[in-house]
Design a protein around this nucleic acid. Structure first.
Ligand code: FES
Ligand code: FES
Lengths: 146, 146
DNA sequence: TTATAAAAGGACATCAATGTCCTTTTATAA
DNA sequence: TTATAAAAGGACATTGATGTCCTTTTATAA
């Protein structure tokens, strides 16, 4: 399971992409509202993302968040890597100190399939591919009421 | 990813099973040492397990932990359920409030496969099946040095 | 029957993840 | 040039997971 911070980050980035496609650059307030996260906490996460160049921002009047031309193929892995690290793609599912093909824990063979399957997803899907599905109406960014 | 507590719990139960097969009933100290967990914390986790009837225990001299006849097919799911709850099998991977087939998030289709795959594993594998692999020498309970 | 060994249980401590608040920096509009 | 709006940043607060310590209960051996 991804951390709450990572989930906020991914959904924030998707929202920024959707707004960018409408020629808009959302600010912290608008983003936080959309992803239903506390505003100040959202600001911290957005800071991490821009500091790590996953997204760009402008200060001052008319400022906000946006992607530049180098940031238009951002995998979910890139986001996870920056926000919570990639331990979950290497860890032993049984709790051993390291996962090891040659000296496996009793869950190794089955767990590896699941872990690698998730890795494949986050290496394949991008902020842009998710945003596209939402733009096409094939998926949603948030639940309607409550 | 499972919580540390759950990992400790699963490994503790496997160790108890292995010792039981040797006609032994390990105590907290022996278990904690084997799974490389703090002794007092291990004691707490073992308490949770016995309180929830996943395992039995005897107090007093010669006491320790063991499985009774009703506890010989304990799925990993049972353990997870008791120690950390089963949220991870229902949660939306994208962070929406609920996962919903009819109103999916953009990760739903792919994420569901992984999530259900893990569910299948923990519903199929048991403390006894894992212990058997270790007894047969096909898997290990801990890493050797350090 | 008593001393001892072991699990059970309660209270507290530490740490990382999550969340809040306030100040500083900076770009733009007036 | 100044006022304003917005992100950046620092410091602190809260909460849940993890970890520690000490006392109580209970079964057995001597
Ligand atoms: S050794 Fe445990 S998952 Fe690989
Ligand atoms: S709605 Fe997101 S995983 Fe099902």
């Amino acid at each position: 399971m991804l951390s709450k911070s990572t989930e906020y980050a991914i959904r924030a980035l998707v929202f920024v992409q959707l707004r960018n496609w409408e020629q808009k650059r959302p600010g912290v307030g608008e983003i936080a509202k959309e992803i239903e996260a506390p505003e100040a906490y959202t600001a911290k996460i957005l800071q991490t993302l821009t500091k790590n160049k996953l997204m760009d921002s402008m200060k001052g009047r008319g400022g906000g968040f946006f992607f530049n031309d180098n940031q238009s193929n951002l995998t979910l892995y890139d986001v996870i890597h920056v926000v919570e690290g990639d331990a979950c793609f290497h860890k032993c599912g049984f709790g051993l100190k390291q996962c090891n093909n040659d000296n496996p824990c009793p869950l190794h063979e089955q767990y590896k399939v699941v872990r690698d399957g998730f890795f494949e997803i986050v290496k394949t899907e991008t902020i842009q591919s998710l945003s596209e599905k939402i733009k096409q109406g094939d998926a949603v960014l948030n639940r309607l009421n409550t």
